[in-house]
């Protein structure tokens, strides 16, 4: 535990609504290096409330890096300067006394700002509604061990399934592409035997909605992988592309 405090200048994006112009507002804070980044925002809000000023709106929930609710762009990087963590796992000991820190919402046309640092990521849900599942009902399924799956395949599927749906990949991409997000789900099911019956329809349906929602194309900069808090690999995008081409070749849908 450290006794000394860090004095920081926070430049925080304030925007009262989706159609209103936003701007950076300056706040001076003195923080413990043991605090998490979101705790200093809690503290800032507590002091703003105390002086009857409007607090900064930001979202977070589990604060363990798994729910995907939090997501801030800190000094230009989604989830901040460290790799493979979510914003809630960032601690102040990685900053220096006197630093100026810029805090912005995830930026993408598909993620409209609701207020300040809070954005609407429901477009990602809509892609999932189109095909992010295996079509089975509750009950009437085979015994779990009747579907043997090689350990390695299961492990690859897990790597893809670890996505927390935070949207950092979209925010990191200059094209606001959601390819890493979509590829993670498509890969998980394309790898597993349970996903085979709908393998090709699934990828077509998900890509269709992804395009309709206005997410951009992938231009192979790998920025998504670099910012992904769970380290989802861009190899999944390669798999997504292969799955999509195969689907188009096999498809009965000639549109």
């Amino acid at each position: 535990m450290s006794e000394h405090k860090l004095n920081l200048k926070l430049m925080i994006w304030k925007q009262s609504g989706p159609d209103v112009k936003g701007k950076f507002q300056e706040y001076k804070v003195s923080v413990s290096p043991d605090s998490s980044f979101l705790e200093i925002l809690d503290d800032l809000n507590d002091s703003l409330e105390r002086s009857n000023k409007e607090p900064v709106t930001f979202e977070s929930d589990c604060r363990e890096g798994i729910c995907g609710t939090c997501g801030l762009v800190i000094n230009g990087l989604p989830h901040g300067p460290l790799s493979r963590i979510a914003t809630c796992q960032l601690h102040m000991r990685h900053f220096k006394d006197g630093d100026t820190v810029y805090v912005e919402p995830f930026r993408a046309n598909t993620f409209p700002v609701i207020k300040d640092l809070m954005v609407d990521r429901s477009a990602l849900d809509r892609i999932m509604h189109a095909g992010g599942f295996i079509s089975i009902n509750t009950g009437g399924v085979p015994d779990a061990n009747e579907i043997p799956i090689p350990k390695e395949i299961s492990s690859f599927a897990f790597d893809a399934a670890a996505c927390i749906g935070c949207g950092a990949c979209v925010a990191a991409c200059k094209n606001s592409s959601a390819m890493l997000f979509v590829s993670a789900k498509v890969s998980q099911f394309a790898l597993l035997p349970q996903g085979q019956p709908e393998r090709y329809q699934r990828v077509e349906k998900m890509i269709k909605v992804m395009d309709e929602e206005g997410f951009g194309a992938c231009s192979n900069t790998y920025a998504c992988e670099a910012e992904c808090p769970k380290g989802i690999s861009v190899k999944n995008i390669a798999r997504l592309n292969r799955e999509y081409i195969k689907a188009k070749v096999k498809s009965h849908n000639l549109d």
Binding site: G139, A144, I147, P150, S154, F158, Q188
Partner: peptide, 19 residues
Amino acid sequence: IDQCVAQGVPFARDYGGLL
């Protein structure tokens, strides 16, 4: 467990492919 496996939940497996 049966339901979750059918949904594609990637539970840990042994080398023989079983749970």
